[in-house]
Design a protein around this nucleic acid. Structure first.
Length: 648
DNA sequence: GAAGCGTTATACTAT
DNA sequence: ATAACGCTTC
């Protein structure tokens, strides 16, 4: 594997803990892979190496590349996200970690559970934080290791009375999770970290598992994750790679002290740098450098291109997102017809919502694509219906699953469902609970048949999903319009289930690693266009990148406006997006205010100032080629003139 | 009292 | 598209 001097020094470092500061496109992934290969060649057994990545997609990709480099078996090397690793480790010692039979719940389930509890604390007609907001607050506090009370006192603007109730709600929430044997995403990290630090025998055992821990995207790790790394190191050596200019997960508690204070926390560590950019042309990097220089923070970054070609980024204006989407899809088709593979193109969006127009044009023009980020297949209502049946069939303590499944049936609402669940909870065995259920039902009901069908087929995930889907289709098809479209998702799930050994494994895999409908359909198809959020684009690259909706209200996103640290994070998000491009960077924007921008001037709570803030407002004119395409030409200067459009 | 329907509000990023 | 909420019906 070919490495430059700096990469080689990092990959072959022989001392203790290392932090590698690597700018965008400087071969971060390459260096981590080279590090793993170096260690293995040196005689370190693959199962003594732990590789922690930000997504499982990244882990999979790195493992594939590593396999090619060392031309040998690397499956013994543990690679995955912090969540996967912690869950895997806890399952291996499930008694000690008390995770036997636990159900992993995703964010939607968390919110659902929170909603049940919230009802008991909200006074009628009162403005009270929504379940999603409560979940966010609690999750943030846990990931940053703050007691919820302290966090609320320090940062929230809620009144004392509300704060107090929020704290009580989180206690109830914890208790409710325990009753249901649920583990939410935060529990996975939290429980592991807690036991790791509290129980010396567990700590010794865990520390004995690995000699080397490689960590990707270090700038986006949070205090809780640091606690985990800190508990696992010595004798294991940390090899952490990151870039503070690409820190874009502060909302999830990411703490760049994990990068900035690395040597302070581990005095015997060294910091190495990767500085040569191999990905992009100098024109793209000039824009990136400008963006960071325009900040009040000192990022101390100046990316220099290894490549000699220079291409100037474009900034194209459109009348509406509709025109923007049409132009982009036509441009991609034209490039494809003249020999570029679909693969070469990536479309990057700030929000899932902002990509709607593009997505519909992709479908209409039949461009093969996958959407990474955004709403996943599992969040679709009908898929949740199906999963609730499957979950309910395997665990009578799964309150959320039972509540959803029971209320699918006519005559059963929240209250009745809740009553039935309480009755079932009293029984230890599934059969007794099932007996109690049959007695609780007002009359003979097909409801029980659904449970039977899954139980009978549970040894084969494929058959179980197939039969469950067939059964459920009759129950819910009236509930949804365009059922034929939704039904296709069921067929997809049957195929996916066939790849797993057990129903539980199937469910868990897609809970921890949500899969979007568009990407799932294209599992075997490699030459496709990638449509992705800026967040999910991190760590990837493409020959031609289209950044859509690069306009006020999106960069920075409207909800960040007015909070300096958040606006600064938006700069980094744009930085990440821009630096994905290899040869060509095409930024597009719209001038019509629609979608999220409709709220720009409204006084909706939680939204920032009315002033327009725009990261490219004062851009050097020679950094980009600007053009206006579309029926009503406008530019930065006559932006004010466009405003009356809003009202139209 | 509970179920279910119709209307209105909301829409960022994610393991 | 879906969640949240209030209102009507059983």
């Amino acid at each position: 594997m070919e490495l430059n001097h700096q990469q080689k020094i990092a990959a072959e470092h022989e001392g203790g803990h290392v932090l590698v500061l690597a700018g965008a496109g400087t071969g971060k992934t390459r260096t981590i892979i080279a590090r793993a290969a170096f260690l293995i060649h040196k005689g370190v057994a693959p199962n003594r190496i732990l590789l922690l990545t930000f997504t499982r997609r990244a882990a999979k990709e790195m493992m594939n590349r590593l396999e090619q480099v060392i031309r040998g078996e690397v499956s013994q090397l543990m690679a995955g996200t912090f969540h996967h690793f912690c869950l895997y480790a806890m399952r291996r010692m499930s008694k000690q970690f008390d995770v036997e039979g636990a159900t992993i719940i995703d964010r939607d389930d968390q919110i659902q559970l929170m909603k049940l509890i919230r009802g008991g604390y909200r006074k009628k007609g009162e403005q009270f934080p929504k379940a999603a907001e409560l979940t966010n607050l609690y999750s943030y506090a846990r990931n940053t290791l703050q007691p919820i009370q302290e966090y609320m006192d320090a940062y929230s603007e809620y009144e004392e009375d509300i704060t107090g109730r929020i704290c009580k709600i989180t206690k109830d929430y914890d208790q409710r999770k325990k009753l249901n044997n649920y583990l939410d995403f935060d529990d996975i990290l939290f429980r592991f970290a807690k036991r790791l630090h509290e129980d010396p025998s567990i700590r010794e055992r865990m520390r004995g598992l690995y000699d080397h821990i490689l960590v990707d995207e270090m700038q986006d790790t949070n205090p809780l994750q640091w606690l985990i790394l800190d508990g696992l190191r010595d004798p294991a050596r940390l090899f952490c790679v990151g870039d503070d200019a690409q820190s874009i997960y502060a909302f999830r508690g990411a703490d760049f002290r994990n990068v900035h204070s690395f040597t302070k926390r581990i005095p015997e560590s060294v910091v190495l740098r990767l500085e040569k950019n191999y990905r992009s042309t100098q024109g793209i990097l000039d824009l990136s450098n400008w963006l960071l220089r325009a900040s009040s923070l000192n990022y101390n970054k100046n990316l220099a291109a290894f490549r000699k070609t220079k291409s100037t980024p474009k900034l194209l204006g459109f009348d509406s997102d509709f025109d923007e989407a049409r132009w982009i899809t036509e441009d991609i088709i034209e490039r494809h017809e003249t020999g570029s593979p679909w693969n070469d193109h990536m479309i990057i969006t700030r929000t899932g919502y902002g990509a709607r127009a593009v997505e519909s044009f992709m479908v209409e023009k039949k461009i093969p694509y996958r959407f990474i980020g955004g709403t996943s297949l599992l969040q679709a209502a009908h898929v949740k219906d199906l999963f609730s049946l499957v979950r309910a069939s395997s665990n009578h303590h799964d309150e959320l699953a039972w509540a959803r499944y029971l209320t699918l049936w006519p005559g059963i609402g929240d209250v009745t469902a809740s009553r039935i669940i309480t009755k079932m909870k009293k029984h230890a065995s599934f059969n007794d609970a099932f007996e109690a259920l049959s007695k609780s039902l007002p009359k003979k009901n097909d409801l029980l048949k659904g449970i039977h069908i899954v139980v009978e087929n549970r040894s084969s995930p494929e058959a179980a999903i197939q039969e469950a889907a067939r059964f459920l289709a009759r129950v819910v098809e009236q509930k949804y319009n365009r059922w034929d479209l939704r039904k296709r998702d069921f067929e997809l799930l049957v195929r996916l289930a066939g790849r797993h050994k057990s129903l539980a494994a199937f469910l868990e895999t897609y809970t921890l690693d949500p899969i979007s409908a568009a990407s799932a359909e294209r599992l075997e198809d490699d030459d496709i266009v990638t449509l992705t959020t800026a967040h999910s684009a991190k760590g990837t690259e493409a020959v031609v990148c289209y950044l859509i909706r690069v306009e006020p209200g999106m960069y920075p996103h409207i909800r960040s406006v007015g909070v300096q640290e958040q606006e600064e994070e938006e700069r980094r998000i744009l930085y990440v997006a821009i630096t994905r491009a290899k040869d060509e960077l095409i930024m597009t924007r719209t001038y019509r205010r629609g979608g999220a921008l409709r709220f720009l001037n409204s006084a909706v709570a939680g939204y920032g100032s009315e002033e327009d803030v725009y990261l490219l407002q004062d851009i050097d004119k020679d950094l980009v080629e600007e053009d206006i395409i579309g029926f009503n030409k406008g530019g930065f200067d006559d932006y004010e003139m466009i405003k009356p459009w809003d009202r139209g």
